[in-house]
Protein backbone atom coordinates (compact mmCIF):
# COMPACT_ATOMS: atom_id res chain seq x y z
CA UNK A 1 0.00 0.00 0.00
CA UNK A 2 1.18 3.51 -0.80
CA UNK A 3 2.38 5.69 2.05
CA UNK A 4 -0.21 8.32 1.16
CA UNK A 5 -3.01 5.78 1.57
CA UNK A 6 -1.56 4.61 4.87
CA UNK A 7 -1.44 8.19 6.08
CA UNK A 8 -5.06 8.72 5.10
CA UNK A 9 -6.21 5.66 7.01
CA UNK A 10 -3.94 6.33 9.97
CA UNK A 11 -5.41 9.81 10.25
CA UNK A 12 -8.81 8.16 10.66
CA UNK A 13 -7.37 6.15 13.56
CA UNK A 14 -6.77 2.84 11.84
CA UNK A 15 -4.36 0.85 13.99
CA UNK A 16 -3.43 -1.38 11.05
CA UNK A 17 -2.43 1.61 8.94
CA UNK A 18 -0.42 3.04 11.81
CA UNK A 19 1.37 -0.26 12.20
CA UNK A 20 2.05 -0.32 8.45
CA UNK A 21 3.62 3.14 8.64
CA UNK A 22 5.64 2.15 11.66
CA UNK A 23 6.96 -0.96 9.92
CA UNK A 24 7.98 1.08 6.92
CA UNK A 25 9.64 3.98 8.73
CA UNK A 26 10.98 2.52 11.97
CA UNK A 27 14.37 1.34 10.67
CA UNK A 28 15.35 4.68 9.20
CA UNK A 29 14.18 6.58 12.27
CA UNK A 30 16.10 4.29 14.58
CA UNK A 31 19.30 5.07 12.69
CA UNK A 32 18.55 8.79 12.95
CA UNK A 33 18.21 8.46 16.71
CA UNK A 34 21.33 6.35 16.94
CA UNK A 35 23.35 9.08 15.26
CA UNK A 36 22.49 11.39 18.16
CA UNK A 37 22.52 9.11 21.20
CA UNK A 38 25.12 6.49 21.87
CA UNK A 39 23.26 3.50 23.25
CA UNK A 40 20.85 1.52 21.14
CA UNK A 41 18.36 1.11 24.00
CA UNK A 42 18.06 4.87 24.43
CA UNK A 43 17.68 5.27 20.69
CA UNK A 44 14.85 2.73 20.59
CA UNK A 45 13.03 4.45 23.45
CA UNK A 46 13.39 7.83 21.78
CA UNK A 47 12.19 6.43 18.49
CA UNK A 48 9.05 5.07 20.16
CA UNK A 49 8.47 8.41 21.89
CA UNK A 50 8.88 10.16 18.56
CA UNK A 51 6.43 7.84 16.82
CA UNK A 52 3.95 8.32 19.64
CA UNK A 53 4.05 12.10 19.13
CA UNK A 54 3.93 11.62 15.37
CA UNK A 55 0.76 9.52 15.47
CA UNK A 56 -0.84 11.86 17.98
CA UNK A 57 -0.22 14.85 15.73
CA UNK A 58 -0.96 13.03 12.48
CA UNK A 59 -4.67 14.02 12.25
CA UNK A 60 -3.61 17.66 11.99
CA UNK A 61 -0.94 16.91 9.39
CA UNK A 62 -1.59 17.81 5.76
CA UNK A 63 -0.01 15.27 3.49
CA UNK A 64 2.13 16.91 0.80
CA UNK A 65 4.25 14.01 -0.34
CA UNK A 66 6.42 11.29 1.11
CA UNK A 67 9.48 13.55 1.40
CA UNK A 68 7.59 16.10 3.51
CA UNK A 69 6.23 13.38 5.74
CA UNK A 70 9.67 11.87 6.15
CA UNK A 71 11.23 15.27 6.92
CA UNK A 72 8.57 16.01 9.52
CA UNK A 73 8.97 12.64 11.23
CA UNK A 74 12.73 13.02 11.19
CA UNK A 75 12.45 16.45 12.76
CA UNK A 76 10.30 14.98 15.55
CA UNK A 77 12.95 12.32 16.17
CA UNK A 78 15.77 14.85 16.25
CA UNK A 79 13.86 17.01 18.72
CA UNK A 80 13.30 14.00 20.95
CA UNK A 81 17.02 13.22 20.84
CA UNK A 82 18.02 16.80 21.61
CA UNK A 83 15.63 16.93 24.55
CA UNK A 84 17.06 13.67 25.81
CA UNK A 85 20.64 14.98 25.55
CA UNK A 86 19.65 18.18 27.29
CA UNK A 87 18.01 16.24 30.12
CA UNK A 88 21.11 14.12 30.54
CA UNK A 89 23.45 17.10 30.26
CA UNK A 90 25.22 15.01 27.67
CA UNK A 91 26.85 17.90 25.92
CA UNK A 92 28.50 20.59 27.91
CA UNK A 93 29.60 23.00 25.24
CA UNK A 94 32.19 25.49 26.31
CA UNK A 95 31.82 28.83 24.61
CA UNK A 96 34.57 29.35 22.13
CA UNK A 97 34.45 32.19 19.72
CA UNK A 98 37.62 31.30 17.84
CA UNK A 99 36.65 28.83 15.18
CA UNK A 100 39.25 27.62 12.80
CA UNK A 101 37.64 26.41 9.62
CA UNK A 102 38.94 22.95 8.95
CA UNK A 103 37.91 21.55 5.59
CA UNK A 104 36.60 18.03 5.85
CA UNK A 105 38.17 15.62 3.45
CA UNK A 106 34.95 14.82 1.76
CA UNK A 107 36.61 12.84 -0.97
CA UNK A 108 37.86 10.36 1.57
CA UNK A 109 34.47 10.15 3.22
CA UNK A 110 32.89 9.71 -0.15
CA UNK A 111 34.93 6.57 -0.63
CA UNK A 112 33.69 5.12 2.64
CA UNK A 113 30.48 3.20 2.97
CA UNK A 114 27.52 4.70 4.84
CA UNK A 115 28.04 2.25 7.70
CA UNK A 116 31.70 3.29 8.06
CA UNK A 117 30.77 6.96 8.14
CA UNK A 118 28.08 6.19 10.66
CA UNK A 119 30.57 4.37 12.89
CA UNK A 120 32.95 7.32 12.71
CA UNK A 121 30.27 9.87 13.53
CA UNK A 122 28.94 8.03 16.55
CA UNK A 123 32.44 7.93 18.04
CA UNK A 124 32.52 11.71 18.31
CA UNK A 125 31.82 13.30 21.70
CA UNK A 126 28.20 14.31 22.20
CA UNK A 127 28.70 18.05 21.64
CA UNK A 128 30.74 17.62 18.46
CA UNK A 129 28.46 14.89 17.22
CA UNK A 130 25.31 16.93 17.71
CA UNK A 131 26.61 19.99 15.90
CA UNK A 132 28.13 17.82 13.15
CA UNK A 133 24.85 15.97 12.65
CA UNK A 134 22.79 19.13 12.62
CA UNK A 135 25.07 21.01 10.25
CA UNK A 136 26.48 18.38 7.93
CA UNK A 137 23.70 15.77 7.82
CA UNK A 138 20.59 17.87 8.42
CA UNK A 139 21.94 20.91 6.61
CA UNK A 140 21.15 23.47 9.31
CA UNK A 141 22.87 26.85 9.49
CA UNK A 142 24.97 27.78 12.49
CA UNK A 143 22.36 30.35 13.46
CA UNK A 144 19.67 27.70 13.58
CA UNK A 145 21.91 25.33 15.51
CA UNK A 146 22.81 28.07 17.97
CA UNK A 147 19.15 28.80 18.56
CA UNK A 148 18.25 25.15 18.91
CA UNK A 149 21.03 24.31 21.36
CA UNK A 150 21.11 27.64 23.20
CA UNK A 151 24.69 28.43 22.25
CA UNK A 152 26.33 31.16 20.25
CA UNK A 153 26.99 30.88 16.55
CA UNK A 154 30.73 31.01 17.17
CA UNK A 155 30.49 28.11 19.56
CA UNK A 156 28.59 26.13 16.98
CA UNK A 157 31.28 26.83 14.39
CA UNK A 158 34.11 25.90 16.71
CA UNK A 159 32.33 22.68 17.69
CA UNK A 160 31.99 21.78 14.05
CA UNK A 161 35.65 22.53 13.38
CA UNK A 162 36.70 20.32 16.27
CA UNK A 163 34.41 17.58 15.10
CA UNK A 164 35.96 17.70 11.65
CA UNK A 165 39.47 17.72 13.09
CA UNK A 166 38.66 14.68 15.17
CA UNK A 167 37.22 12.92 12.18
CA UNK A 168 40.44 13.62 10.25
CA UNK A 169 42.40 12.06 13.07
CA UNK A 170 40.15 9.03 13.04
CA UNK A 171 40.59 8.68 9.31
CA UNK A 172 44.34 8.98 9.70
CA UNK A 173 44.21 6.33 12.36
CA UNK A 174 42.50 4.09 9.87
CA UNK A 175 45.37 4.75 7.42
CA UNK A 176 43.07 6.29 4.93
CA UNK A 177 45.05 9.06 3.36
CA UNK A 178 45.20 10.93 0.16
CA UNK A 179 48.40 9.08 -0.67
CA UNK A 180 46.63 5.78 -0.42
CA UNK A 181 43.84 7.11 -2.56
CA UNK A 182 46.17 8.48 -5.17
CA UNK A 183 47.93 5.15 -5.53
CA UNK A 184 44.69 3.40 -6.30
Amino acid sequence: MQLSELVKQAKRGSAAAQQGMFDRLADGMLMVCRRYVKTREDAEELMLDGFYKFFKALPAFRYQGDAALYAWLKRIMINECLMFLRRKNAFVIVSETVAEDIPLETDILDQLSAADIFNLVVQLPAGYRTVFNLHVIEGMHHGQIAELLGISEGTSKSQLSKAKALLQKMLAHKNITYVKRSTQ
Binding site: D27, T106, I117
Partner: peptide, 14 residues
Protein backbone atom coordinates in the same frame (compact mmCIF):
# COMPACT_ATOMS: atom_id res chain seq x y z
CA UNK B 1 29.77 19.76 -0.28
CA UNK B 2 28.87 16.49 1.39
CA UNK B 3 27.90 14.01 -1.32
CA UNK B 4 27.89 11.09 1.15
CA UNK B 5 25.19 12.76 3.20
CA UNK B 6 22.26 11.12 1.43
CA UNK B 7 23.80 7.69 1.83
CA UNK B 8 24.20 8.23 5.56
CA UNK B 9 20.73 9.69 5.85
CA UNK B 10 19.19 6.76 4.02
CA UNK B 11 20.97 4.17 6.13
CA UNK B 12 18.42 1.79 7.61
CA UNK B 13 20.60 -0.79 9.33
CA UNK B 14 24.19 -1.62 10.02
Amino acid sequence: AYPWRDRLDGLESL
